[in-house]
Design a protein around this nucleic acid. Sequence first.
RNA 1: GGUGCUAUCGUCUAGCGGUUAGGACAAAAGAUUCUCAAUCUUUAAACCGGGGUUCGAUUCCCCGUAGCACUACCA
Length: 511
Amino acid sequence: MERKVRVRFAPSPTGALHIGGVRTALYNYLFARQHGGDMLLRIEDTDSTRFVPGAEEYIIEALQWLGIGIDEGIGVDTPLNTRGPYRQSERREIYHRYVRQLLDAGKAYIAFDTPEELEQKRKQTPNFQYDASTRNQMRNSLVMSKEEVEQYIQEGKQYVVRFKVEPDEDVHVHDLIRGEVVINSNILDDKVLYKSADDLPTYHLANIVDDHLMEISHVIRGEEWLPSAPLHVLLYRAFGWEDSMPQFAHLPLLLKPDGNGKLSKRDGDRLGFPVFPLEFHDQKTGSVSSGYRESGYYPEAVINFLALLGWHATGDQEIYSMEQLISDFSLDRVSKSGAKFDYEKGKWFNHQYLQLRDNKLVAEEFMPVLEAHGIARDIYPQATIEHIVGLMKERVNFVSELWEQCDFFFVAPTGYDEKSLKKRWKEDSPRHMQELLAMLEAQDDWSAEALDNLVMPWIASKEYGVGLVMNAFRICLVGAARGPHIWEITGVLGKEETLRRVRTALQRLSI
RNA sequence: GGUGCUAUCGUCUAGCGGUUAGGACAAAAGAUUCUCAAUCUUUAAACCGGGGUUCGAUUCCCCGUAGCACUACCA
């Protein structure tokens, strides 16, 4: 009875997609691809009060950017979309039907207790729980007459439908990552399945109904759902769907890098790194949250980084392409414990992918940075830009960091770094530079080799000291004691510009 | 408070009864060099505690401890 693998990512559109959610989506995707199954995207918007405009579009765009493909559901227009709608707020009639079914079977009941009343009750009774031990003291269809219930509803009184959990029963949940989890039904409360106020089900009901109707084979979700998994099992049972119930896998949580607790949006702001894939503009609050894409990350790096936060193969391999992940991933190698989010390692992954990347592409990505610094696109030949990024990329994690490493290629120094001057610009330096200038003026072959053959013997014969001369020269060209090998710099600058910078420096630095 | 899950270097992790407990990030030192980086080499760094089971436990079981999650008419 091999069942087709069908998994779903089912976020709620309450804001930007959290990085932990991204990882959940990724694991679902990897699992689906590996088994030749389907990956669905469903929007769980059953809480009308928390809906954030733009969130759905954000989710779709984020998954797209990361290369997490959707086969069915929201965001894709495909003939496979035969089990829709895939937005829960558009499935009201469906839920009505199943709520009715539970009500008729006596497995759920109508309750009129207001939120205020319940809050009051919780204050009065320590550890109050709406369950078999207390439901008879409440205002619900279990204790009221049929007529009374009818009348209440006629009057427009708001109500909820609660699941009638049978007491004292051990509920077994088989988790693909954690094994058998057993919970006694006594600790479960009579969960609200449907609220009349907005005519929508709660997560629990919608989730079970949709997973069943959409023929989901595996539910891969965050660990925060583990405590309610037994409730979900009970719901499948109540509907008579236990035979086709999906298998569960509860993923470990992503934790704060410092201290304790779940990684949250605030941590990003506090520690200065993104917790969202894309920059997000909250239309309600007007706040902007940074994203990995805008921070200069390659999607491959984010995927690789996230994949290894909670999953690891047997060996020492760390660099994984999406294709490799699809073939190597397995749920039984997902760790059970939460993973602290290590942003430094994330940067390292991007560094790796930057090194692997074709210089042509890196140069293309660097163009906007150059333009932002007033360097027009056509001033330098493409080949020169490629050469420069190829030279410098090994020292940075992001393309955006390239400018501060190689600005001197494009603009002559406007000033000279004081520290460098103090350490490297000595009394004899002006004289050395004068001599060097004279030699270079007469030099025609500007290749690194020729220059080296010209300058090194001269330094040696005069016993000036290589460090002293070369660093002074570097200060003239760069404005500071940094940058790649000096002949790389002269090579890019060319003879004219090199000489010009030395003359300028002599003017400015001779006292 | 209750229930559940979890527990190897600071961090992510490998290990699935016998290992000098491995790798990576971060850290430190050295090498290289005209500088700054990068790179390479090296170093430091861990089995939460206590009981069992076993010839032998990081590994299996139990208890404790700690961390986390859940405990809404949120997902």
